[in-house]
């Protein structure tokens, strides 16, 4: 579904991605691990074209989305993204956040958009917050709204960029539970996370990144139980105590 070929990204002199090759198949939950600064977020953001690659290709359903003639807005409609900082729209209600793109991008009728939005908010357990504003929500609730907002576009892939890192510890689970349900429903997901429990339980595949390269990849089970690369070993030892 997603095929990345020799992807490079430079920010000025800073070489963040140094040749990434990666395949993600439909229904896979790909967990991206690695120390900070290893390029995990940049990789994720490149897939959504929030970063323009310096060189290399990203194929989405066989089409190179880094090409000049690609309608980036179209591509992004098919790829949902959830951010560490929620990025909810503070001037809109919770339902308004979820239905905005349905109304303004897909131009769906109001009643239908409200129905889709309401169903999604029920799904993430926020039925009673529908008419509230983002500033009335806890971090965990905000992040669940952000997930519902991304799902509203009915994306084929979901990208999660350290979505629990800004949360108080006791709020992490409610967000991970929503993601777990999503994984079970067959959604293709790429997840940058430091939640090892989640990675182990929900991840089907794992890649480990260091200094802009994928140093190890494989089935989640194999990597956690039997990491090959010394960097992966050291990292897992450190984060798993």
């Amino acid at each position: 579904m997603i095929k990345i070929v020799d992807l490079h990204k430079k920010f000025g002199d800073l070489h963040v991605l140094k040749g990434i090759n990666l395949n993600v198949n439909k229904g896979e939950v790909m967990v991206i691990l690695g120390p900070s600064g290893s390029g995990k977020s940049t990789l994720l953001r490149s897939i959504n074209l929030l970063e323009v690659p310096t060189s290399g290709q990203i194929f989405f359903d066989g089409v190179d989305i880094t090409g000049k003639k690609i309608d980036r807005n179209r591509v992004r409609q098919r790829i949902g993204m959830v951010f560490q900082g929620f990025n909810l729209f503070p001037h809109m209600t919770v339902l308004g956040n979820v239905t905005l793109a349905l109304l303004k991008v897909l131009k769906i009728k109001k009643e239908e958009a409200v129905k889709i939005g309401t169903d999604l908010l029920i799904r993430v357990g926020l039925k009673d917050k529908i008419n509230g504003y983002p500033n009335q929500l806890s971090g965990g609730q905000k992040q669940r709204v952000a997930i519902a907002r991304a799902l509203a576009m009915n994306p084929e892939v979901m990208l999660f960029d350290e979505v629990t890192s800004a949360l108080d510890p006791e709020l992490v689970k409610e967000v991970l539970d929503v993601m777990k349900d999503l994984a079970k429903s067959g959604m293709t997901m790429l997840v940058v996370t430091h939640e090892m429990g989640f990675a182990k339980e929900v991840g089907s595949h794992v890649i480990f990144m260091d200094e802009g390269l994928i140093v190890e990849e494989g089935l989640a089970q194999d990597i956690f139980e039997n990491p090959k690369h010394p960097r992966t070993k050291a990292f897992l030892d450190a984060v798993l105590y």
Binding site: R76, F86, K104
Partner: peptide, 23 residues
């Protein structure tokens, strides 16, 4: 305005103009 607002809107497939207008 936090850059994350633009990114969130763009990631939903909204154009630059729509992002400006609605967000």
């Amino acid at each position: 305005i936090d850059k994350g607002q633009i990114e969130a809107a763009r990631s939903l497939g909204m154009s630059y103009a729509k992002t400006m207008r609605y967000i």
